[in-house]
């Protein structure tokens, strides 16, 4: 019975996806027309491997979360999907939609524009650490070296862990690392 429900749920999502897929490919096309490097090349790579047996990757966790649609849109716009399914290990600090919404008005829209792809990618890489540490274990660190090449501070206040000023709200183990949900976008210095 439980399985049936799950299947129904899955079927429903599949339906949803058909429409979403169309939108996505339209987006891809428009991106390609302004970006020489990806022109005429279908998106390939590990992110597009069909695999329903493995534990979800950090990318799949973000995609599956209704609270991270902005983050996922940003990852897709920056074309970082393949890096996020890599063997890593990767520790992703995933700002919620609310966190993105708290940025000055228009920030997200501007970053999602194709001409800002490199800038967006840099900001996203600033949310990724090569490593895989639990929230508790993070308390051992003073700083973390991010994929952006910059460091972020790790602080503990009232037992809670803050990275680059953002509070860890929840943590989900992934097949290739861990996702820590955070309440703020961690802005790089550069």
């Amino acid at each position: 019975m439980k399985t049936n429900l799950k299947m129904l749920l899955g079927a429903f999502v599949l339906l949803l996806f058909v429409s979403c897929k169309n939108d996505a490919s339209k987006q891809n096309n428009s991106a390609a027309s302004t970006n020489v490097e990806t022109k005429d090349e279908p998106r390939t790579g590990q992110a597009f491997v069909k695999d329903d047996e493995s534990k979800p990757t950090v990318l799949h966790i973000a995609i599956g979360s209704p609270d991270h649609t902005t983050l996922v849109a940003a990852v897709q716009a920056a074309e970082l999907e393949n890096s996020l399914v890599n063997a890593g290990p990767l520790m992703v600090f995933a700002p919620t939609n609310e966190a993105f919404a708290a940025l000055p008005e228009g920030t997200v829209e501007t970053l999602l524009k194709p001409e800002n792809k490199a800038k967006l990618a840099y900001i996203l890489k600033h949310h990724v650490t090569p490593g895989n540490y639990s929230k508790d274990f993070l308390k051992k660190f003073k700083k973390l070296g991010q994929a952006s090449n910059e460091n972020i501070k790790v602080e503990v206040k009232d037992g809670e862990v803050y990275v680059g000023g953002a509070k860890i709200l929840a943590s989900i183990k992934a097949g290739n690392g861990i996702v820590h949900v955070v309440d703020k976008v961690i802005l790089p210095k550069n």
Binding site: K21, P42, F48, H60, I63, G64, S65, D67
Partner: peptide, 30 residues
């Protein structure tokens, strides 16, 4: 939040898997 994410996780994985299907069909003649 955590609960939501866990629930979403399962559907998310399925969602993504189906997406790959259609993507990979266009990869053949790279």
């Amino acid at each position: 939040n955590t609960l939501k994410i866990f629930a979403a996780l399962f559907v998310g994985a399925m969602l993504f898997a189906s997406c790959n299907n259609s993507e990979s069909s266009t990869n053949g003649s790279a």
